[in-house]
Nucleic acid binder design. Structure first.
Length: 259
DNA sequence: ATGGTCGTGGGACGA
């Protein structure tokens, strides 16, 4: 089972790029972020025609997450628990019923800039809610994962120019500590389980020729429960996607599971 | 140090 996470930065503008990538990469499951669409406007038929089941959790203009799956999806939950006042569409989870059942959670973690301010407070509060959900997930002792745009640069080697991010919400010590608190509950960060090498990124800004200069950061992650990590056979980043026509500023990150 | 570019929706705001 191949499972990918991809921040597409707007479904309308990404129809072609997303469709081409699905045809080539053939993920069984794609967790999408920033669909920037209400559920009713999401072009679900296009993906259903490719054999995907489609579950969305969208809102107007901003945010929005979705799950595409060639396997049946069960027990879909929309919204991260823990704050009834939070109306941002940033979380969707479901059970993928393949050879084995895998609980998949797709997330779009708040950016948090500017710092300090209410947006950064919201980011940290959201990460604390994520930690609570993560603990409950681990207690199930089943194959499960939380994947998406974390808006967290975990380590200096995850940025081409770490010095330019030191005051940014994506790289502040408090942000990285909150991320570690979640990982250290017992998750495996899929990409770092495969290599400790620097220079692997999942996002390049549209501005200032970031892609051309390879000025990237690695902020899209898959966190696996021990039972899911035991099943992992491969992990990769589809970097080449970023150099195509009308690309997202993120690229897909994927794993394969023996499930 | 600053501004640089996108997407959505049809003006600002988010990133």
């Amino acid at each position: 089972m191949k499972i990918a996470t991809f921040n597409i930065n707007g479904i309308k503008a990404r129809i072609k790029a997303l469709s081409d990538w699905l045809d080539e990469a053939q993920p069984d499951v794609a967790l999408l972020q920033e669909i920037k669409s209400v559920d009713e406007a999401f072009p679900r038929e296009m993906f259903e025609d490719k054999g995907y089941n489609v579950e969305t959790h969208g809102q107007n203009s901003f945010n929005g997450v979705a799950i595409l799956s060639k396997f049946p999806l069960e027990d879909v939950v929309r919204g991260l628990p823990g704050d009834d006042e939070d109306d941002h569409a940033r979380w969707i989870e479901a059970t993928v019923v393949g050879k084995r059942a895998v609980r998949v959670c797709g997330l779009y973690l708040p950016n948090g800039n500017p710092v300090p301010g209410p947006k950064y407070d919201y980011k940290l509060a959201w990460m604390e809610r994520l930690r609570t959900r993560a603990k409950a997930l681990l207690e199930q002792e089943e194959p499960a994962l939380m994947a998406g745009d974390y808006n967290v640069i975990p380590q200096a080697e995850d940025a081409a120019k770490p010095e330019s991010w030191v005051e940014d919400a994506l790289f502040l010590p408090e942000t990285r500590a909150a991320f570690r608190r979640i990982v250290n509950l017992g998750f495996t960060e899929a990409f770092r389980a495969r290599t400790s090498a620097p220079g692997h990124y999942s996002f390049w800004d549209y501005q200032a020729g970031a892609w051309q200069r390879n000025n990237g950061i690695r902020i899209d992650h898959l966190l696996l429960t021990p039972q899911a990590a035991d099943l992992m056979t491969d992990c990769g980043i589809d970097k080449e996607i970023r150099g195509r026509d009308k690309p997202s500023d993120h690229v897909p990150v994927w794993i394969t599971l023996d499930a």
